[in-house]
C-alpha cells in the first residue's frame, strides 16, 4: 500500500500516532520504520521529527532497523521462563542459526524476546508476525520454521 494512502486513513491528530506507526511498519517488507517514514508522519501530524522518533524508540514493537520478513517474538514471562524458554531459543538457533536480537542474512527471520504474551496456560509460546504458536517443543518449532522457508522458496 502507498504510504500516503495509509496516512490518509487517519485523522491528522497526535493521538493517532501509534496506530499510524503500526500500519506503516506492518506494510514495510522488512518490518521496520525508516527515517523517511518518521519524517513523513511528523509532517502529516504537524509535529517534530524528534517527537515521533522519541515515541518510536520508547515502544519495543517498533524498529528503526530492518528486520526479517518474519519477526519471531519469544515470550520470556516468568511462566514461559519456568517451563523453559531455553529449549525454544536453542531450537531456533539450530534451525536458522540466529539468537535474540539477530536477523538472518537473507532477511527472512528476526528473533526478539517479548514480555508476557498472555498465553501462560500454553507455555512456552512464541509469535511469528501475527500468529501465536503454543506449547512449543523442538518438533513444533522446526515445523513452523520449515514450513515458512518452504513457502518462501515456492513463491
Amino acid at each position: 500500500m502507498d504510504k500516503d494512502e495509509i496516512l490518509n486513513r487517519f485523522e491528522p491528530q497526535q493521538d493517532n500516532l501509534l496506530n499510524i506507526l503500526h500500519e506503516l511498519q506492518n506494510n514495510n517488507p522488512n518490518n521496520f520504520l525508516p527515517t523517511e517514514d518518521l519524517k513523513l508522519v511528523a509532517k502529516y501530524l504537524n509535529t517534530s521529527y524528534s517527537a515521533v522518533y522519541g515515541v518510536v524508540k520508547y515502544y519495543t514493537m517498533f524498529s528503526l532497523k530492518p528486520r526479517g520478513k518474519y519477526v519471531i517474538r519469544l515470550c520470556k514471562s516468568p511462566v514461559c521462563h519456568m517451563i523453559d524458554t531455553n529449549i525454544v531459543l536453542q531450537e531456533i538457533k539450530n534451525n536458522i542459526d540466529i539468537g535474540l536480537g539477530e536477523t538472518t542474512n537473507d532477511l527472512l527471520f528476526s528473533v526478539e524476546s517479548s514480555e508476557c504474551l498472555g498465553r501462560c496456560a500454553e507455555a512456552p509460546v512464541m509469535m511469528v508476525n501475527e500468529k501465536i504458536h503454543k506449547e512449543l517443543d523442538s518438533i513444533k518449532i522446526s515445523n513452523v520454521l520449515d514450513s515458512i522457508k518452504l513457502n518462501e522458496q515456492n513463491k
Binding site: 491528530q13 497526535q14 493521538d15 493517532n16 500516532l17 501509534l18 496506530n19 506507526l21 503500526h22 501530524l45 522519541g54 515515541v55 520508547y58 515502544y59 519495543t60 514493537m61 517498533f62 517479548s114 514480555e115
Partner: peptide, 26 residues
C-alpha cells in the same frame, strides 16, 4: 475507537495509558 499499544507493560497503568493514548511516550 480502538487504540493500539506497542509493547510497554507500563502503559497498562491508567495514567500512563492516557499518555500513550494521546500519542506520546509511555
Amino acid at each position: 475507537k480502538i487504540k493500539l499499544g506497542a509493547g510497554s507493560y507500563l502503559c497498562g497503568e491508567e495514567l500512563t495509558l492516557l499518555e500513550s493514548l494521546e500519542g506520546k511516550r509511555g
